[in-house]
Amino acid sequence: MRRSGSPFTGVGVVLAKEAADYLSGARMWLLEALVFLTAIAAAYAAILSIRASIGESPFLFLRLLTMAQDPLPSFIALLGFLIPLVAIAIGFDAINGEFNRRTLSRVLAQPIYRDALLLGKFLAGLVALTIGLFSLWLLTIGLGLLLLGLPPNTEEMVRMLGFLVATIAYGGVWLAVAFLFSVVFRAPATAALAALGVWLLFSLFWSVVTPLVATLIAGPPEGIFGPNLDYARRAIAGHAKLCPGMAADNRPHRRNDRHFRDRLCGFSTPGDPGLKPPANQKGRSEWTAPGVV
C-alpha cells in the first residue's frame, strides 16, 4: 500500500537536533581528539622525512598522506584504522538508544516516517564526521604549508580533495554498519560489539582469513612462490638469458639453481627424472621443489 506524504518530512529537524547533540557530546570530542592527535603526529613525522627529499617527487603534498615514519604508520593507514572506530562510536546506539530512553515512540508519534528519523540521524552522524575530517584535512595541509614551505599545486589539491571525499564515504559505510546493528540489537553494548567484530574482521583478520578460504576453495598455492610464480618464472628466465654461463656450471649448488630455474621456466632437464617438468604446466601444484634452493 502506498502511503501519503513525503518520506523526507522532518529529516531536517532530526538532522539539526542530532548534529547538535553529536557535536556537543563528550564522546565526539574524545574521539576527535584521539584522531587529531594521532593523525597530526603521523603527518608531522611524514613532513620531517619528506623535507629531506624535496625536489625528488612532483607530488610532495600527497606524500604527506602516504609516507610512514617509524614507529608511526602513514596518515592514510592511521585514518583507515581509526575512522571506523569513530563511526561506530557515533552510530552504535543511534536507534536502540532512543528505544531504551523511551523517546522513540514520542518522536515517531509526530508526523514523520521512521525513514526520516533514520535518514536524519545518519546524515547528522555524517555531518559530524565530515566536520571532524574536514578540519583534520585543513590542519594537515596547513601543517604541510608551514613546515615544507611549499604550496600544493592544483593537481595535488584535486587529489587531496578526492582523498577527503573518499575518506568521508569510507566513514559513511562504517556509520551505516553501526546504524544497522543499532536497529537489529536492542542492547547498545551488543550492537557496539557486533560492529567492532565486523571492523576487526576486515581490518585484522581479513588478510589471514582470505588466503585460508582461497586455499579451501582452489587448493594450495603453487610452489614456494605461491601466487607470484609467474613473476618468478619471468624473472628467472630473464636471469638465464643474462647469464648463459650458468647452464654450464655443474657444481652441485649451481646445479640445483639451474634445475630450479628450468623447473619454473619449463626448460627441459635431461638426465634427472626427479626434476622433470610436468607434462601439463597447469599441474604445477603437484610438483615438489628441490630440497636445496
Partner: peptide, 17 residues
C-alpha cells in the same frame, strides 16, 4: 495505514513511561 502523517498531525500521543 494510508495517511499516517495526517493522523499524527491531529493526534497527541502520550506513551506509557
Amino acid at each position: 495505514l494510508r495517511d499516517p502523517l495526517e493522523v499524527k498531525r491531529r493526534v497527541g500521543y502520550l506513551p506509557d513511561s
